[in-house]
Computed example of a mutant assay.
Amino acid sequence: MFRKMKNIDTAFRYVRLFTLVIVTGNLLLCGYIVYRTNVTLTANKGKVYVMVNGKLVEAVAMERNIPVELRDHIRTFHTLFFTLSPDEKAIQAQITKALYLADGSARREYQNLKEAGYYSNLISGNISQTIDIDSIELDMGVTPYKFRCIGRQYITRPTSVLTRSIVTQGYVRTGMIQSDNNSHGFLIERWEIVSNNDIKTESR
C-alpha cells in the first residue's frame, strides 16, 4: 500500500513538472512572438505597399506638401475644363472629369456656356481649345484656401489661332476623401472666371 502511494506521488510530481514546462514554454513563445511583432511593426512604420502593373512596390509615406498639391489640383481642373476638341463625347468626358474636382459653381459655369451655344459652336466650327497656366497664386493663411489662376487660352480654328488671357479665382477645400476621380481629396469652391480677353489672332 505504501509503495502504491509512493508511485502515485511520483506520477503526480512528473505530471506537475511536465505541466509547468509546457506552461513556461508557451509563455516564452508568446513573449517572443510579441517581441518580434513589435520589432517588425517598428521597422515597417511609415511604409506602404502598392501594386504597380501587377508588382508589389514599397512606398514610404511622407508628409504632404499641401501648396504643391493645391496647385496641381487647380492646374488639373483648369486643364480638363478648358482643353476641348470638336467632339461632343470628348467634351463631355473632359467636363465630367473636371466636375469631380469642383463644386456646383463649376457646373453652373458649364451650364451657362452650354446654354450660350459655346460647345455647339466648337463642334460645328471644327474648333479646338487648349490652355496654358502661367501662374497660380495661393493664400495659405486661412482655409478654405483662396486662389487666383492666370493663364492663356489658344482657340484653334481652321484658318486662325486666337490667343486669349484668362483669369479665374475661387477657394479650395481640403479634407475630402481621396478617390480615383479626385486623387488629392480637394474641392474647388466658389469658382468664377474673372476675365477672359482676346490678346491676338494669327493666321494659320
Rank of each mutant, 00 (worst) to 15 (best):
G175L: 02
E192R: 05
T159R: 11
R107L: 10
S128P: 04
D139Y: 09
F12V: 12
R157N: 11
N126Y: 11
S179C: 04
E63R: 09
N65I: 08
E69R: 03
N197Y: 00
M140E: 09
A98I: 00
Y118Q: 05
R204V: 10
R164Y: 10
A43L: 10
T174Q: 12
V57H: 08
N196D: 15
I150E: 13
L20H: 03
E115D: 14
E69D: 11
S105V: 09
T143D: 15
T24V: 11
L29A: 13
L20E: 08
D9C: 14
T174H: 06
G185C: 06
A43G: 02
S160I: 06
G125N: 10
L80Q: 08
P67R: 10
N65S: 09
F81T: 03
Y171C: 04
E88V: 13
R71K: 15
T40P: 07
T37Y: 14
I150H: 12
V48F: 05
Y100L: 05
K200V: 09
I199P: 07
L17E: 03
I95E: 02
T76I: 00
F147V: 08
N196Y: 00
F81G: 02
F186L: 02
S165G: 13
D132C: 04
S124Q: 09
A59H: 14
V172F: 07
I22F: 09
N196G: 00
I66E: 11
V194Q: 07
R36Y: 13
D139A: 14
S160T: 14
V167P: 04
D139S: 15
L41M: 14
R71I: 07
E137T: 13
E63Q: 12
D139E: 13
